Simulated assay, not measured.
Amino acid sequence: MSANNNNSTLKSYVDSATGAVQNAAGGLFGSTGDEAQGKVKQQKAEAEHDASHAAVKVPGGTVSSSGVARDDPDRSAGSWNQTAGSAKEFLGGVVGNESLKQAGREQNRSGQEQEARGQINDFTSGVGDRVSGAVGGAVAGLTGDRSKQDQYQAQHDAGKTQQRGAELDIQKQAEARDRS
């Protein structure tokens, strides 16, 4: 995906500000054409911002407009340990086996920690790939190396998807805690 077609959070902020200025200037000077163009630019910027943050979690990874990224193995293993731990805890409660119930609690807690480590790894790795991809792409653009520029763009895009996947899981867990 080329940089020109990629949804960019930064570009959406710039376009939104430009649209707001154009809209205000149009209103101030009585130019309904400029005012309307400013509003359209702001709406387009909002849509681009939303698209740059859109991502879908699938088993073992994340899919976004920027690409596909695999989850850190600790995320799925931690999730499995939480499920198994909850099942043991439930079963221990049903049959009155306190040691099974306690082992389930510990496995669940351990799984939560393991999943959190995986999320942190994915988030930091994603941010790192986005930054190094953006910097490398800029340098490659200055030197005119289109092949390297495309490679760095792919690294940036994969990092963005990986970061968004971790953010989705963290947000979903926070919302679940707020509901309980």
Rank of each mutant, 00 (worst) to 15 (best):
77 A>C: 00
164 R>D: 15
116 A>G: 11
30 G>Q: 03
2 S>I: 12
88 K>Q: 14
35 E>W: 00
66 S>E: 11
161 T>A: 00
39 K>R: 03
28 L>E: 13
84 A>V: 12
119 Q>G: 12
3 A>Q: 10
100 L>E: 15
138 A>L: 00
29 F>N: 07
70 R>H: 09
80 W>Q: 02
118 G>T: 12
88 K>G: 14
54 A>V: 04
7 N>E: 08
44 K>W: 05
84 A>Y: 09
19 G>A: 01
76 S>L: 00
34 D>F: 03
126 G>T: 07
159 G>C: 02
8 S>H: 03
5 N>Y: 04
173 Q>S: 12
60 G>Y: 09
173 Q>T: 12
152 Y>A: 07
61 G>T: 13
76 S>P: 03
42 Q>G: 06
81 N>D: 13
171 Q>A: 14
162 Q>H: 08
118 G>S: 08
60 G>F: 03
5 N>S: 06
68 V>I: 10
117 R>P: 15
34 D>T: 05
10 L>D: 13
35 E>R: 00
46 E>T: 08
156 H>M: 09
167 E>D: 12
50 D>P: 07
98 E>D: 14
36 A>F: 01
71 D>S: 11
144 G>K: 00
137 G>C: 04
36 A>M: 01
168 L>N: 15
98 E>Y: 10
157 D>W: 08
14 V>Y: 09
42 Q>L: 00
6 N>D: 13
89 E>K: 02
156 H>L: 08
95 V>T: 14
57 K>L: 09
10 L>A: 10
103 A>M: 05
8 S>P: 03
17 A>L: 02
153 Q>S: 13
23 N>W: 09
117 R>T: 15
69 A>L: 06
136 G>N: 04
149 Q>H: 02
91 L>Q: 11
108 N>V: 09
140 A>I: 08
37 Q>P: 09
179 R>A: 14
138 A>R: 00
146 R>W: 10
45 A>P: 15
5 N>K: 01
109 R>K: 12
18 T>C: 06
3 A>W: 06
33 G>P: 11
137 G>D: 10
148 K>V: 10
80 W>V: 05
26 G>N: 06
51 A>P: 15
